[in-house]
Each structure stands twice: as structure tokens, then as C-alpha cells.
Design a protein around this nucleic acid. Sequence first.
DNA 1: CCGGCCACCTGCGGGC
DNA 2: TGCCCGCAGGTGGCCG
Length: 271
Amino acid sequence: MPELPEVETTLRGIRPHLIDQSVKAVVVRQRQLRVPVSRGLKSKLKDQVVRDIERRAKYLLFHFDCGTLAIHLGMSGSLRVTSASAPIDKHDHVDLLFNNGAQLRFRDPRRFGLVVWLGKRPLTSRWLAHLGPEPLSDNFNGDYLYSRAANRRGAVKNFIMDGRIVVGVGNIYASEALHHAHIHPARGAGRISRHRYDDLCVAIKGVLARAIDAGGTTLRDYVSADGVPGFFEQQLAVYGREGSPCGLCSAPIRRRVIGQRSSFFCSQCQR
DNA sequence: CCGGCCACCTGCGGGC
DNA sequence: TGCCCGCAGGTGGCCG
């Protein structure tokens, strides 16, 4: 479900409720997520104060004095701040209860998500150490993309979805950004000019920034931490629109599997 | 190092 | 109504 804009929207929703609050209890109903939730989490977090929460790639990092907890939403995860009386869904796997009465609830039907302790040096942990730059940062630019693409024969769509190259570009926004930049998703990454990588970089930043502004994209059941759906779906140019006319040239949008993922594009506008 | 493929898991909608 | 199939927003790991 969530790509970077949805994770950023979640961060903005939960942060004000939890900063400076101390953990009263941890409830784990299902520890079999992508990796098992560690049994020591409860004793580790008890009475610890949330000093800050930030996002790195699609990971939410909860910083405590004793170290950092990471939560990843996988394909179907969501985080909500609820009251203690909220009914428990069968996929509500982990709660953090706070002394101010707030409760952070992690729900994840498919259980591809992650609740892991990263210790005192989170950026060197196996989950974060290999990650590429943030797409909205200044060190992600056309020069960087072009240099990393040299000699790569794989499809550019797979290239920009590779977290070692750049983080946070998932299946929706990869298709969207490539349409904006008029680049065919199956084109070899090493066969794109420096100039076109400038365009692609601008397109990636633009599409992510607009999606954040709209509160993310709601497909199926995604809602932000406050229970409000995102409204970016109405702005999607190609994703999920197979057969409908391209907004630029009216040719029908095509769907094709690239790297085992559905990809949407206009074969007129994108080369 | 790189590319291709698989796995993990549940739910939903469409077709018969 | 019910079953089966294909599809779904992520990403680490394995193999050649």
C-alpha cells in the first residue's frame, strides 16, 4: 500500500500525538511479521520517552534514549493513533500505549511490515545501511542518476525502484514519474541521456511532492493516521488507467509487466 | 556488481 | 452462491 508519500503522511499524522510521551506498555498480538517482533521489546521500551520520530526511505524511526525502533508498513500496513477503547481488528498486530492515553496501533493484513529494534546506530543497521539518497534531497539530481545508470542494461523503471539507487519510489510513482518525463518504462537505464535524467529527476521530485501535499494516494483501504483518505488518486495520469486515454495525446494507456510488477504508460508519449 | 526470479501473506473482485 | 484465479502500494535473498 504505502509508498513514500503515504509514509510521510503517516509520520505527520502521528508525530504531534507522540513526541515527548512515554511508553506505558507494548502489546504484541501477532509477532510473525516479515521478521518476528522481538520478545524483549516490551521491557526495552517501558517508560522510555519518544524523543523524535522521523522517516528514512519508507521506514518510520522512533528515537528513544536507549535506541531506535523502526516500523515499516510493507504492502498493507497502517499506523493509527487511537483511543484505548477502539475495537481491535484481527489484523491489529502491535500497540504502543502511552502515558497520555494515546495508543499507536499497527495494522497489517498481509504482514509484510516490520517492527524492529535498530539499537543506538540505526543508520548502520542491516535495514538502512545500503539505502540510496532521499528523492526530495538535493543530492538526488540528474547528474547522480545518470552516473549510477552507466552500463546498466535493465529497465529504467526497475532502476528507479531500486532502493540502493534512490529510496521511496514505488510502483505507482515510478509509472507516474516516467510518464511525466516521457520515458518508456522498459528502456534500458544506461540508454538514457543526461538531459532526460534531469527531466526524470524533476518528475520524481514533483510527483512525490504533489502526492504528499494531497495526503497520499488511497487505493482500496489506505487511510492516514487520522483516518482520512489521501486524494492523490484523482491526479494519477497512468497508474491503474489501462485503456483510458492519455491526458497528453489521447492514445490508450498500456499495461505491461516489467520486473514482475504492473507498469502503466503511453506508448505514444513515452519512448 | 548486475539482472532475473522467488518468497513472504491475506483479501478482494471477476468470471464461470 | 460459491469456487478458483489473478491481482495488489515492498523488498531481502538467492542464483547464475
